[in-house]
Amino acid sequence: MSSTSQKHKEFVAEPMGEKPVMALAGIGEVLGKRLEDKGFDKAYVVLGQFLVLKKDEELFRDWLKDTCGANVKQQGDCHGCLREWCDSFL
């Protein structure tokens, strides 16, 4: 991440608690809606998926693409924000 977005900073700054999935960086309304439809309504569910994939970037990116059709930048944003969150809070 060359430059982190505001969303990224906000997400990484604190425990995610019950934040919705759209609080994740790279996940906007459209992708958030798709994820919610698939049951990933909270950010921590996505975090669970991220963790169960052992924080593997490639797999997580693939998963995100398959699940909600995120593009490369969105994948990168989401992965970066979750990884950083894990680094600081896990």
Partner: peptide, 17 residues
Amino acid sequence: VKAGPIVASTRALYEKK
């Protein structure tokens, strides 16, 4: 490849891999 837990939500990914 050291696969993680292969569960319902991850199986498809590992298959693809």
